[in-house]
Simulated assay, not measured.
Amino acid sequence: MNCVEFEWTSADGVRLFGCGWRADDKSEVKGVVGIVHGMGEHSGRYIEVAEALTAAGYAVLAADQRGHGKTEGKRGHIPSYEALLEGVDLLLKEARQRYPDVPCFLYGHSMGGNVVLNYLIRRKPALSGAIVTGPWLKLAFEPSAKDLMLGRIMNRIYPQFTSHRPSAVEKLTSDPEAARKITEDPLGHRYITARCFFSLLRGGRYALEHAAEITVPVLLLHGVEDSVTSLSASRAFAESMGDLCTFKELAGYRHELHNELYRQQVFHLMLTWLEKAGERNA
């Protein structure tokens, strides 16, 4: 699998790190998938996803979101929700420049799922479809009223106010080796600012309210044992979206489906769906 790194510059001058993978320079590419990662993650956490996709003939592009990975900015902070959508703009522009004549898809996990679904609703992009796993539409738990009140105050007077997110890696995966890599990852972090939290909270609510406006097929996967993001919210989203959404609840899986013990089964579901979506758009 070949890897290439590149950079983009946002409208406000922030440098964003991007990378791309394909099987090799000479192989035929049947489609391109743009990855939008979750909170505290970065594009490097998706190498196994890229390996599965490139082995099946797809090219993959990913970017480190604002305040994440190798991209500039205060860790866990965004100036606005629009800045997250701009990152997807840049990712898709790169994908279409590099692979102009093949089906184009988005893939988003957790926070990235929140962003991808909002992107489909607000931007109405000409895509062949999107894969979303464990999206942050709602959290699987309720923050305390005290924390929410403090966060709202800080969002008004000092939006860069930073909180530490819970660090229980066992909520993410039941795979000990994957858990070790997450824990030891020097580019990962557990920070989130008041502006980022409430922007994503509103984004999840907006996606639930406007799910029926999505016009491209979506594969929505959620682990039954997910204690980070809400399975019932994903279920409600799928019901609102209707026939364009293929929704699967995966028993025994925790939050990070791509890092779970039986992730090869998840990759198989994705690839099967991608093939069918590509055929529909051929």
Rank of each mutant, 00 (worst) to 15 (best):
L139W: 00
L148Y: 06
I157N: 11
R152L: 07
G129F: 07
C196K: 02
G112R: 01
Y119H: 10
V102Y: 04
R122T: 13
M149G: 03
F161C: 12
I121A: 07
E142N: 11
K146V: 14
R152F: 10
L187I: 01
K124Q: 15
T162R: 13
S167C: 12
H164K: 14
E170R: 09
H210R: 13
S174R: 10
G188C: 13
G204V: 09
K171A: 09
R123N: 12
G134V: 02
V115Q: 06
M111N: 01
S144I: 01
P143E: 08
D147K: 15
A178S: 12
L172F: 07
L106V: 04
G113M: 00
R123G: 08
D101Q: 15
R205A: 15
Y158G: 02
P143Q: 11
G188D: 02
V169R: 07
G129D: 12
L120P: 04
E177V: 15
L201G: 06
V116R: 00
Y99I: 04
I121R: 05
E184G: 04
D147G: 10
C196F: 01
S144L: 08
I192Q: 13
G188M: 13
V115Y: 11
A194S: 15
G129L: 12
S110D: 04
L150W: 09
P135A: 09
A178I: 06
I121C: 10
T193H: 09
S144C: 04
R122W: 08
Y206W: 13
H189R: 10
L139Y: 03
F197W: 14
A194L: 08
I182P: 00
T133Y: 05
T193G: 07
S174I: 06
K181Q: 14
P135M: 06
Y99R: 06
G203N: 11
I182W: 05
L117R: 03
R205W: 09
I153Y: 14
V132W: 02
A130S: 14
M149F: 15
S167V: 11
T183Q: 10
Q160K: 13
